[in-house]
């Protein structure tokens, strides 16, 4: 039997087993008093007394970095679910350390639009919001401040439903550019491209976890995690794929230097060509492009994927807990 899991639209329909598995993951059974309730009765979707604060990285040199955060703040503002929706940034106004001065709702949910748990989500943002004092190794994710309850939610990138966001991106690109025809997933190797860095294992883990989840669904012929700064490298995709069609999804929030310029270069476009295309306002990668006998589709970063707004809501629901 299938029935709607949630109103967010990420999972249109799920089996009972999937629903229970999902609930167990969100709330350990000991803390979840109402496993027998019908979905979504055990989740409060009334946030009219709450403010939502989306945190992005931002940039002091270009507007692109902030675009996805603003996009989802606009989208969620339009839905009218929250009393107030604010975006804030590490590098742009309103700054992380500034934003709560303008938030007055009794409940406040802070959701970082970041890919992985790490330096920014666990150290910098909590410190600048006053959740964590310098030197503290841990901090309470829900805190009382004056008459407000502040909830610090997990980053969107590590949420299990990001799998749907990645799959949506992969589906869309071949449907948008079906030349000569859109390949079936079963004839396609899907690559999830991440930054990767020796400084933070979580960066790699978030990508590998998503690759494993998608692989488990057996939709695509192959699923690989590849990286800019670690092995296996993005440029190795042609060698790693055993099928002709490749779809590569950059697991980045923002389209910027990495996704617009660096990755197309790693995929074989000469950097001067990439820069000339950028200068002329053209896409830096043409879908699909033939390389070494492989046909490669390359998507935009996931941050602008509309479903990400629903992942944000899922993070808020998790923090709000059962009603």
């Amino acid at each position: 039997m299938q029935r709607p899991l949630c109103a967010s639209g990420i999972f249109q329909f799920c089996t009972n087993h999937e629903i229970l598995e999902y609930l167990d993951q969100r709330w350990p059974s000991a803390n979840r008093p109402c496993r027998g309730h019908h979905w979504p009765c055990d989740v409060s979707d009334n946030f009219s007394d709450a403010a939502l604060v989306l945190i992005g990285h931002g940039s002091t040199v270009n507007a692109d970095s902030a675009t996805p955060t603003c996009q989802h703040a606009d989208a969620l503002r339009q839905r009218g679910l929250f009393a107030q929706v604010r975006e804030a940034f590490w590098k742009q106004e309103p700054y992380v350390w500034q934003v709560l001065r303008g938030v007055f709702a009794p409940r406040v949910f802070v959701v970082p639009l970041f890919i992985s748990d790490g330096y920014f989500t666990e150290e910098v943002i909590p410190r600048e919001l006053g959740f964590r004092r310098p030197g503290e190794t841990n901090f309470a994710r829900a805190q009382q401040r004056g008459g407000q309850t502040l909830h610090y939610c997990g980053p969107v990138g590590t949420h299990s439903s990001m799998t749907e966001v990645l799959l949506a991106r992969a589906r869309e690109i071949v449907q948008t550019f079906p030349f000569p025809r859109a390949p079936k997933p079963s004839d396609t190797a899907l690559f999830i491209a991440g930054h990767g860095t020796g400084n933070n294992e979580n960066s790699r883990q978030a990508i590998e976890q998503q690759a494993a989840l998608i692989r488990g669904r057996q939709l695509y012929a192959e699923v690989h995690a590849v990286f800019m700064e670690e092995d296996p490298r993005i440029g190795d995709c042609g060698r790693l794929a055993h099928v002709k069609n490749i779809v590569m999804v950059p697991f980045f929030i923002s389209d910027g230097l990495h996704s617009f310029e660096d990755i197309p270069v790693m995929l074989g476009v000469p950097r001067p060509v990439v820069r000339e295309r950028l200068r002329q306002g053209q896409p830096t990668w043409r879908n699909p492009t033939e390389r070494d006998g492989k046909r490669i589709w390359y998507t935009a970063a996931i941050g602008s994927e509309p479903h990400l707004s629903d992942v944000i809501l899922e993070r808020v629901r998790e923090a709000a807990g059962p009603c």
Binding site: R77, R86, A88, Q92, E93, P94, Y95, Q98, V99, R101, G102
Partner: peptide, 16 residues
């Protein structure tokens, strides 16, 4: 909202 677009966080800072 319009003031937020032009000067993000500025009204709250002015008040604070």
């Amino acid at each position: 909202l319009l003031l937020h677009y032009l000067y993000p966080g500025a009204v709250a800072d002015w008040f604070a």
